[in-house]
Write a protein that binds this DNA or RNA. Structure first.
Lengths: 155, 155
DNA sequence: ACAATCAATAAGCAGATGCATACGGTAAGC
DNA sequence: GCTTACCGTATGCATCTGCTTATTGATTGT
């Protein structure tokens, strides 16, 4: 009686973290060369994605939204601004803060990068799910991801 | 007309990586205190989980299975061996390699940790999915995770 | 006006990670 | 026997991450 039939049944499923962790790493590895082709770092792409069309009022809010340290995204923002991809000007109503938003060029680049990334994800990953699982998987994943956003405290 | 109704529709869904990455991080953060309570690091737990009951013949194979550098798991293996949680002896048929396996104590500790971890995952994450999405999500996730395992080259 | 507060920025530190090199012990081919 | 290749191990390096402290300019409350 080693195990596996009638024991204490230690494992019905693998740990979520044990599945999602490596999966995330693999997705990042797929994504990296695509982003490089567009001249973007992972953080830069996270900034462009978050700054979608809704401008943020402070850099600290942006940093928190992408789960980064606020002192670490400054160089990324400098670069994006120098390249004309983001707007970043002092808020006239509170000149301590910097209003952040995408420029038209930033939006174009973001859309192009996102299109390439999602095409890769579709082909390399989602295409290997049965048709009747794909939508449910994406819906459930979106639910859990919303719960994981660093800007809320688990209700 | 800001966005969202009739534009070029740049985003039907969020990037998989953008959802799975932060979700993995959140899961790790939940897991860390549980592992600490059992006296295990993340790598140590990965070792115990992988060494389940199927012994491996080389440390390099173990390192690859958990996606770690083979030179970096040595300290972890030393510690686990000192604590009597794993078996690690030279293969009599090829004394370069070390046969790796769990001891009974290692198996007990692994089961206890896994039980606590999965209970936390059930309560904090899976319980917030609709009943009819949960199983499908887990099945699809397992499919993708199997595809992400570092020991295979995408077929 | 003055003190306390806040945002952005700069700088530093401990730890982890990926990557590369080097060395001793072991095995296998010739 | 000798060369070559492989495993475990030790070590170093460049980078990234989370975290902390300090400075400067701007705002707010009293």
């Amino acid at each position: 009686m080693t195990d596996g039939s009638a024991g204490h049944r230690p494992t019905e499923r693998a740990d979520l973290a044990a599945m999602i962790g490596p999966l995330g790493k693999a997705l990042m590895n797929d994504e990296l060369p695509i982003l490089q082709r567009h001249g973007l770092s992972m953080w830069a792409y996270a900034v462009l994605s978050t700054l979608d069309r809704t401008p943020l009022r402070t850099q600290a809010a942006l940093a928190q939204a992408i789960g980064a340290d606020k002192t670490r995204i400054i160089a990324t923002l400098d670069d994006l601004q120098d390249r004309g991809l983001i707007q970043r000007e002092p808020d006239p109503e509170d000149r301590r803060a910097r209003l952040l938003g995408l420029t038209a060029a930033g939006e174009r680049l973001r859309d192009a990068a996102k299109r390439d990334i999602q095409r890769g994800e579709d082909e390399n990953w989602l295409a290997h799910l049965p048709d009747d699982e794909r939508d449910t998987f994406l819906r459930a994943l979106a639910t859990l991801a919303a719960r994981a956003r660093p800007d809320r405290d688990e209700p």
